[in-house]
Simulated scan of single mutants.
Amino acid sequence: MIGETLHLNRLVKRYDETLAVDDLNLTVNAGEFVSVLGPSGSGKTSILSMVAGFERPSSGEILIGSRNVTQLAPNDRDIGMVFQKYALFPHLTVRQNIAFPLKLKKRWKERWRSRADEMLELVQLASFADRLPAQLSGGQQQRVAVARALAFEPPLMLMDEPLGALDKKLREAMQIEIKRIQQSVGATILYVTHDQEEALTMSDRVAIMKSGRVVQIGTPVELYRAPKSMFVADFVGRMNFLEGDRLFTKEGGQQIRLSENTVLTMLADCGIQTDSSGEEERVTIALRPELIGIEARKERKPNRIPGVVEHSIFMGPHNVLIVRLSLPGRPAVEAQIPHFSSVEPFESGQEVDVIIEPTTLTCFSASERCAA
């Protein structure tokens, strides 16, 4: 393992009156791949710039292993960096590009060529060693950039939107390739992206940013299945939201009343993120599209909401249905229905029941939506 632990302690960054990073505490363990994910203006690029040394923190400290690097220049931090623009030297061969940082360090001066060839093997580009960058595809150039960043065994690697310039299919292939390389050498990676699919695919943990703060950090599964706020629920993956009243029964059970005639029976606390202990509370329920069932309209049964299919969109492995519900305000939900040869596809205008399984719901206080 080449990676060391990164500690960001009470990190603050101000640009005049703008607070870009607000009292941030974040640890990336040795050999861990952590992505920082958030909308534009959330502070993720400012974090990367401070760790790299391009910006100085307004306060707080940055530690790599046992070294406090807060005030060090970028070239004194021994950090490997990969950016969206590969920054390869166009006049140097692939081997020479990888060898460039090695020749600047005493440790590698005598064996830069053998180390460069080791890295070429790692990124599966040994046969391209003598080519120029212009003779490579975008994905191959990105692998060269990764190899160059890893060549001198940095304690930390920073990656800033490195796959943004690639087409979708190549980007997906490179996600797997970068993760393979990272695991094979035990590199510590701090990865900044606005692409949630990228973060979920590659990361051991993901830190979700909002307004300069980490609002939740966890494994991709934790963030997707157990969001702690409506912001995270809405930002990670696709989500439907419906408002209703949370009711407490005399037997200790719970129900969500969506309308006078539509009540959902709940199990336990449905992952509820509320403060109320009263008998009734306004809540917002969150439903993942792939966890919603759809059936042709039948007799009324518990945990079904009547609706009408507005759109049916073919998406390859599944159809996306937009269903307008028979509830106050006529809200619409999105459902993902996998293709089965034995099931007739749903059509626009068809009356259906939306089936809600009690275990698939997450609830939030309705006031949180207003605050957002």
Rank of each mutant, 00 (worst) to 15 (best):
V12P: 00
L63R: 15
Q182S: 09
I64H: 12
D275T: 15
T360R: 10
R107Y: 00
T284L: 06
M119Y: 13
I355P: 00
F128M: 14
D16F: 01
E55V: 05
L8F: 00
I322Q: 09
A286D: 07
K13I: 02
D353P: 01
R213Q: 10
G80I: 09
E351F: 03
M266R: 06
E198M: 09
D130A: 05
R143V: 12
Q142Y: 09
G218C: 02
R95K: 13
Y224L: 06
R171C: 05
P317F: 10
E347H: 13
A187V: 13
S229L: 04
E280P: 00
A116E: 08
K210C: 01
I256C: 12
S49C: 11
P57T: 03
Q142P: 04
Q336S: 10
A99T: 07
G271T: 02
R171L: 06
V206R: 10
M50R: 10
V21R: 04
Q273I: 13
C370P: 00
I305G: 00
V232R: 06
P338S: 14
I64A: 12
R246D: 04
T5N: 10
M315E: 13
S59Q: 13
N303V: 11
S342T: 11
A372Q: 14
T5Q: 15
T249Y: 02
E347S: 13
V323M: 01
M1N: 14
F248N: 11
S277V: 14
G38C: 09
V34P: 08
F83N: 05
V69H: 11
F100T: 11
A165I: 07
E310R: 11
I285S: 02
N29S: 15
P155Y: 11
I176H: 12
E121Q: 13
T188W: 10
L24K: 01
